[in-house]
Computed example of a mutant assay.
Amino acid sequence: QWAMAASLVKKYGVVPTNAMPESFNTNHTAGLADALARKERKDALVLRKLVQEGKTEEVEKKRKEFLSEIYRMTAIAVGEPPKTFDLEYRDDDKKLHLDKNLTPVEFFNKYWNINFDDYVCLTNAPDHEYGKLYSLPFEDNVNGGLPITFLNVPIEYLKEAAIKQLKDGESVWFGNDVLKEMDRKTGYLDTELYKTDELFDVDTYMTKAERLATGEGEVSHAMTLVGVDLDKGEIRKWKVENSWSEKSGRKGYFTMSDKWFDEFVYEVVVRKEFLTDDQKKLAESKPTPLPAWDSLA
């Protein structure tokens, strides 16, 4: 979820790669993820048993113990971020600068002009009522962090807000179902890419609402909109930056058809200024909490 990453940066800041270089485990996270998942599942069995036995005080004690072990595993695998670091750089005029003893939070606040509270996650979930703000409280995993919320609106509003933000010079985070109608090598995202129904002489088409309701559709990946091709206001295609290295697509960039946006894009994160007046009011309203098994989860 976008709010998870925003909460981490807001709370802990960021560091440049020279202060904490990438390692094998940060570039190949599958092994660590597997070890953490196995540890957490075993811990869950212990905690559930304690709850069933009514040992509430022991639950919190064990939870803290398990979190400490999770932290140790992660620190061993990827290292601990530096508490302070020095930043040396040349500006556009080739003048040398040295900024000493920066904390990660100071670095972020000084060199980035970003207010995460200015952003809203617009979602297009046709199996839910439009014009409502929803939340996923069970996924709020950063203490004191931003709540995970979605303002559910028709798909055209996601496009309008995304285009406005792109025209303003800022890329757009978006959640999507990337494995549907996608070719990794060429980087094409197009609903006409594979003609499997014609091959088998069947009809497997489902609406977006039906795909969400059955689990066929999901937000499986996040990418970034970095461009849009417009012809007299009509959308021809979108330019997408992915995170699968330069070996995928055209040096890491994908081409997405507008129909693919309709079918497989579920979320865009945009600044509030690009919403309608009614949407701005809804974004400030009390959200309706969704259960853990909801299709938006």
Score class of each variant (00 low, 15 high):
Lys159Trp: 00
Leu47Phe: 03
Ser171Gln: 04
Glu129Thr: 12
Arg184Gln: 11
Leu166His: 02
Thr276Arg: 06
Gln165Met: 05
Val142Asn: 14
Lys167His: 14
Lys167Asn: 14
Thr214Asp: 09
Met206Asp: 02
Pro289Lys: 09
Lys100Ile: 09
Tyr205Cys: 03
Ala75Ser: 14
His28Asn: 14
Phe24Ala: 04
Thr288Asp: 11
Pro287Cys: 01
Leu96Thr: 05
Ala75Gln: 13
Ser23Gln: 07
Ser295Gly: 09
Asp99His: 05
Gly227Trp: 10
Leu32Asp: 00
Glu181Lys: 05
Asp127His: 15
Phe261Leu: 09
Glu210Leu: 06
Glu273Cys: 07
Tyr130Trp: 08
Asp93His: 10
Tyr111Ala: 09
Thr288Ile: 14
Trp238Leu: 14
Asp277Met: 09
Lys195Tyr: 03
Trp260Ser: 11
Ala33Asp: 08
Tyr111Met: 01
Glu106Cys: 03
Ala283Lys: 10
Asp258Met: 05
Arg211Ser: 08
Leu158His: 05
Pro287Ser: 06
Leu282Asn: 06
Glu129Cys: 03
Phe254Gln: 10
Ala125Ile: 10
Arg48Asn: 14
Arg236Ala: 08
Leu225Ala: 05
Phe274Val: 01
Asn141Leu: 09
Phe264Tyr: 15
Glu40Thr: 07
Val120Phe: 09
Asn176Cys: 15
Glu40Pro: 00
Asp197Gln: 05
Gly252Ser: 12
Tyr194Phe: 13
Arg90Ala: 11
Asp278Val: 12
Asp262Asn: 15
Gly79Asn: 09
Lys259Tyr: 15
Asp294Ile: 04
Gly175Pro: 02
Thr84Pro: 06
Lys286Thr: 15
Glu58Leu: 15
Phe264Cys: 06
His221Gly: 09
Leu45Val: 08
Leu296Ile: 10
Glu181Leu: 00
Lys64Asn: 12
Arg72Phe: 07
Leu179Trp: 10
Lys100Met: 11
Glu284Gln: 15
Asp93Ile: 00
Asp92Trp: 02
Lys10Phe: 12
Tyr71Val: 14
Trp238Gly: 04
Phe108Trp: 15
Gly187Val: 00
Ser285Val: 07
Phe85Ser: 11
Lys195Ile: 06
Glu267Lys: 04
Lys247Gln: 14
Ile163Phe: 03
Asp86Tyr: 13
Lys132Pro: 12
Thr214Glu: 10
Ala292Cys: 00
Glu218Gly: 07
Leu166Arg: 04
Gly145Phe: 08
Leu122Gly: 01
Glu241Gln: 15
His221Met: 08
